[in-house]
């Protein structure tokens, strides 16, 4: 038996990232059930302790345990990121589907609105939205959602238009299907996997946005444990050479978001299996 080309051993990035994401979700769900966090509690006697067995991530400038605060911060960030991504995807899918299913002048009007939104830098637009409200989770989600549905709308619309020109839509017209039935039964299900992928890809981006807004002092209330707030608060101690209050919350922003992104990439590969070089019969 001659092996033409032995299958290359690839790093199972999909499995690794799935495990990381699962661990993250488990941690942020389970830890708060057993270990409560008192947001106001300070212990000035043990402030800015480097990592040790009792405080693996060290303590911050008012003596709070950084590991626990990081987990709570990640929880807030994930929640904000996921909800914001979901809302943005729902808006984007609805707008894109409307434009793609109707076509003609309706499509042109909708897409000009999308262009209008795109012409404003989205962080600026997001800052404008949060600035109108008192700091809190709701305004941050709203700020991220209203600035991030544009690309989803474009993807969904393009996918709808491409599906609409397929002969199977012609066949449905001859088969007596109404416009609504074609949109709901044939077009929308075809774009949902793409929209779902866009949503997952958006979660890391939304987390970064939440962190950025909080870092700028425009996001969540400063007493709340959020990764952005923590990095912001740690700036002073970093200048003094205390690296741990910046490093660990920073890693908590980077690692889970990369894992989610890798998971989304693995999903995308599944959506277009033809890219993989495997013999399918």
């Amino acid at each position: 038996m001659a092996d033409l080309a032995p299958p290359a051993r690839r790093l199972p990035t999909g499995a690794i990232s799935a495990a990381l994401v699962a661990a993250t979700v488990l941690a942020v769900v389970l830890v708060p059930l057993f270990v409560p966090l008192d947001e106001q509690a300070v212990d000035l006697g043990s402030k800015l302790r480097p990592p040790s067995w009792s405080h693996p991530f060290g303590t911050d400038e008012v003596g709070r345990d950084l590991l626990l605060r990081s987990v709570y911060g990640l929880r807030v960030s994930l929640l904000v990121g996921a909800v914001a991504a979901l809302v943005a995807t729902v808006i984007g899918t609805a707008v894109g589907a409307l434009a793609g299913a109707l076509g003609g002048w309706a499509d042109r009007v909708v897409m000009r609105v999308v262009d209008l939104f795109s012409s404003v830098p989205h962080l600026l637009l997001g800052i404008f939205v949060v600035a109108m409200f008192r700091p809190g989770v709701g305004p941050v989600i709203a700020s991220i959602a209203v600035t991030h549905w544009l690309s989803t709308a474009r993807i969904v619309r393009a996918e709808m238009l491409s599906l609409r020109s397929r002969p199977f839509v012609d066949a449905a017209v001859s088969g007596g299907s109404s416009r609504l039935r074609i949109a709901v039964r044939h077009l929308l299900p075809g774009v949902l996997p793409q929209a779902g992928l866009a949503a997952v890809l958006m979660v890391p981006h939304a987390i970064w946005h939440e962190s950025a807004l909080s870092f700028l002092g425009l996001g969540l209330p400063t007493h709340q444990a959020s990764l952005g707030n923590m990095v912001q608060a740690a700036r002073g101690s970093l200048l003094a050479g205390d690296w741990w209050p910046t490093l660990f919350p920073g890693l908590f922003i980077i690692v889970p978001t990369l894992a989610v992104a890798a998971l989304a990439a693995a999903w995308r590969e599944r959506l277009s299996p033809r890219r993989r070089s495997e013999l399918t019969l």
Binding site: P167, A172, G176, S177
Partner: peptide, 25 residues
């Protein structure tokens, strides 16, 4: 049409593909 792949909704089983016009009407 010429290309059956393009003329069939990829998510429908062949039974549903054939029955679709009856359901739509």
């Amino acid at each position: 049409f010429q290309q059956p792949r393009m003329s069939a909704d990829p998510r429908l089983r062949l039974h549903d593909l054939i029955a679709e016009p009856l359901r739509a009407t």
